[in-house]
Design a protein around this nucleic acid. Structure first.
Lengths: 339, 339
DNA sequence: GCAGACATTGTTAGCGCTAACATAGACGGC
DNA sequence: GCCGTCTATGTTAGCGCTAACAATGTCTGC
């Protein structure tokens, strides 16, 4: 690299060094045809030599494309959303886009609007919103200033392109598995009512019971955290309402439940068969190892970006169809369900 | 909002609507003094009316400031880095910056360089690198194209501004607590050798033992994952080398260890007192509840951005001092250590 | 009532890049 | 050998914004 003359080199400097016009440099940079191989080599050498870097702002100004995708994520210690974000990032970068991220402290429609506003100021070309909650989904415009929006993890959303995991199918598989083991019915500790995933898991649980003609008690609603799983499970035991099988809406609450059962002398799986959801890395090492439902978050992120890029390329024509991609969930059987 | 005439309104449109020059619009937008209140109101009304949004590329082109901070994160299911990222995001947004994120699939120096290159192309003003591993730290230039770099979670780094948790202090507190309970020595299951945090925890463990004049067996090295905790703990039991107290370098491996002990009929805390590290949300609900060391990741993120912004404002003058901020860790005593 | 300071607004000139058009030479067919 | 076509390159004109300077008024003190 040549020592810069006090400021960053610009295209004109490269042009001068290579003995061509700045336009030819631009052509080389953008892979235009009709540049002599020898000229191209000279330009590339000059670029290398000067340590030239194209100015993205100048390019964006004239092309009207920033190459940035905005992501709205929820600030959460939850396993899923965090993994989804990295899936999105990899897919976006592979496609040559930059990623601008905003996280929400609270899932209110207002915060979603603020977040998208922040991203709009940066002139992002499109949005991916990780929207596991109804309130997030509702705060979301469909086209934010002409830029397309894709919801991820946003259950059965509005007329909006959505990519999500088949929560209902996963829940159904879990409950059917428990019923198949001979349980008369299966109880349910659900996630918070506002969460679409929680709702879909309730629906899957209910559907599996209905299909089997099994009775369904009202589910108990927790908040995803271990504490609520602990308390709700303890309540079931104390009130003598503990079913022979229990489907808990996520692994964290399932851990809480395990603990409550341990404290109360209720054996898992002998006295109660337990199934969780998420397949966190620890799940296989709980006592007993937790049967659970695994989700492919990386795939969700990839498809989310895929749908967005399609929309971007088609100029929104594809939005008519309101793509709805469903990634399958997978039951992982371990000891906690008794087989 | 008035219907746009087919294209996004620009500053000149606002100026026309408000009956002023575009420069006056610019002044209003940038909060310059010397604009009559009445004029300002007219301009703001026109902006609102037209739904005008300043073009960030054009502004960046002339000011040479993009307002973007680049973050290099590691792609990981680990609890800490994910939380740190959201801490960084909140602090950056509060300061009026945008955040561009790149995640690494693998912590190699090459990937770090690629990531920073990607961000440089976007003309970020500064970098925050979440660098829990030595290889990440080493792949990191100090000033990337004139932009300052701050390492976060990067243990005892090079002459680079660093913000990290007092891993050594946390480990030391944990081990001292165990020794204080009457144990002759404390064993250690460590994290991977390449990880600075793992190294610091080993150092803290060793130091506490030395200070107490207690013997130190060689630590066993895991990979942070539950499985390795399980296998190493099992090995200790099988080989009859299990100490009365064990410090495990993170909660995930501690869960694996708990499971191994359960399988082998080793009681916690009666036969072995156990302490983990991280304080994941589940820790209080393991059987027995896990004594562990909590880290304030949000604070780490905030301080990381704080240091970077200082550097940005001072034009790097502050880099001389190579800031090194240490966030304290906190021992959380639960049942697994026996008191 | 007038100089000088100050407040308010307008005008001009780029920032670094790409798109569109202009130009000049090379080539091939008849 | 001349014209049309194609290839390789240069020239010009902005993209939308801010900084610098210029040009007005407005007010103060004496």
């Amino acid at each position: 690299m040549a020592a810069p003359p006090g400021r960053m080199p610009v295209m004109a400097d490269v042009a001068r060094a290579a003995g061509v016009s700045h336009q030819t440099v631009s052509r080389v940079l953008n892979g235009h045809p009709n540049v002599r191989a020898e000229t191209q080599a000279r330009v590339l050498a000059a670029i290398e030599d000067l340590g030239y870097r194209p100015n993205s702002s100048a390019r964006a100004l004239v092309t009207r494309r920033t190459g940035v995708i905005g992501v709205v994520a929820v600030d959460t210690a939850h396993y899923g959303p965090a993994r989804t974000l990295t899936g999105i990032e990899h897919a976006a970068r592979a496609a040559g886009y930059y990623l601008s991220v905003v996280t929400l402290t609270e899932a209110s429609a207002e915060q979603v609007r603020d977040a998208m506003d922040h991203l709009a100021r940066q002139a992002v070309e499109g949005y991916v919103v990780i929207a596991p909650q109804r309130s997030v989904l509702e705060g979301m415009p469909e086209w934010a200033g002409g830029a397309p929006v894709v919801a991820v993890e946003g259950g059965e959303a509005r007329e909006l392109p959505v990519v999500c995991v088949d929560q209902e199918g996963g829940a159904r598989a879990a409950v059917r598995h428990l019923l198949g083991l001979g349980h008369r019915t299966v109880g349910h500790i659900a996630g918070p009512r506002d969460w679409l995933e929680a709702e879909a898991r309730v629906a899957g649980w209910r559907r599996a019971l209905e299909e089997a003609g099994a009775p369904a008690a009202e589910p108990l609603y927790g908040d995803w955290r271990p504490r609520s799983g602990y308390e709700l499970a303890r309540r079931l035991v104390q009130e003598g309402r503990l079913p022979g099988a229990l489907f808990v809406a996520n692994d964290q609450m399932a851990v809480g439940a395990l603990r409550a059962f341990g404290d109360a002398g209720v054996r898992v799986p002998e006295d109660v068969a337990l199934v969780g959801f998420d397949d966190v890395p620890e799940a296989a090492y709980y006592a007993p190892p937790l049967t659970t439902v695994a989700q492919d978050f990386g795939e969700v992120g990839r498809r989310g970006i895929g749908v967005l890029l399609d929309l971007l390329e088609s100029g929104g024509a594809a939005a008519e169809s309101a793509a709805r991609e469903v990634v399958p969930a997978r039951l992982v059987v371990r000891a906690s369900c008794g087989a």
